[in-house]
Amino acid sequence: MFDICELCEPETLAEAKAIFRANPELKVIAGGTDVLIRMQHGNLAGAGLLSLRNIPHLDEVQLLADGTISVGAMAPFTRIFEHELIRKLVPVLGEASVSMGGPQVRNVATIGGNLCNGAVSADSASTLFALDALLKLETAEGERIIPMRDFYAGPGKVNLLPGELLVAILIPREGYEGMGGHYIKFAPRKAMDIATLGVAVVCKIRENRFVELRIGLGVAAPVPVRCFEAEDYAKGREVTWECVQEIARLALKPAKARSSWRASKDYREHLIEVLAQRAVAEAVKRGGGCCAD
């Protein structure tokens, strides 16, 4: 069916890293929901594949001793949104995970694959941006931990070194603790669709003031972006409807919307503003605040 010249299926992470160091031209395959489509289109013809499926523990979701939540790169989206830790501590990531594809796709598609594919529409990416997540990358030589926003290099491009594997996504305690969150995926249809826009918001509210606000946008620019101006504006301010509207206006700043046959620039910018409003309002509510005017 597919034009594949070889398939390596290492049993341990060390073995995988060794194979990848020796053969950096291999294409890493996780759930296969992106890679196989590219092969079907005749891209990657004759490629060799390095599958991570047989490596144990790479799909686990864990709470580390310092409060960091570690999501294994090979965790499929179904496992993430069903996982007790995610439901309890970062429900916004569950929300993003369940918005992806349909049940069959979510059963095999992994969060690591979703990120490494580099698509700006990745439902998990904007949420992990908002959560200030870190990525644990490993080669045979060692590991490095980088912030999400240093990972995206351009449309479909990520900063992975030759022979380097994404092993886990780390959400530090300060990224999620005490935060209300909301993810809005906007797409023409309600299932089996790719986001026209993704808005992820997390916020910490004390006495109805923003202690902290973080907004991640997907499909608003060539790579997922954070809305720092809007976030800085919010800090310390009382939650009011006017304040939420101003935040939404400022959320447009990092956007580089463009017209395509899918949607015009005007429509995309309009969406960013109204959906940022909605997402912030809902996140505030979940964070214990109230923005009734």
Binding site: R189, K190, A191, M192, D193, R262
Partner: peptide, 11 residues
């Protein structure tokens, strides 16, 4: 099928 949008049952 990903960008020619036909409705699904939930739509």
């Amino acid at each position: 099928m990903t960008n020619y949008i036909i409705p699904t049952s939930v739509d």
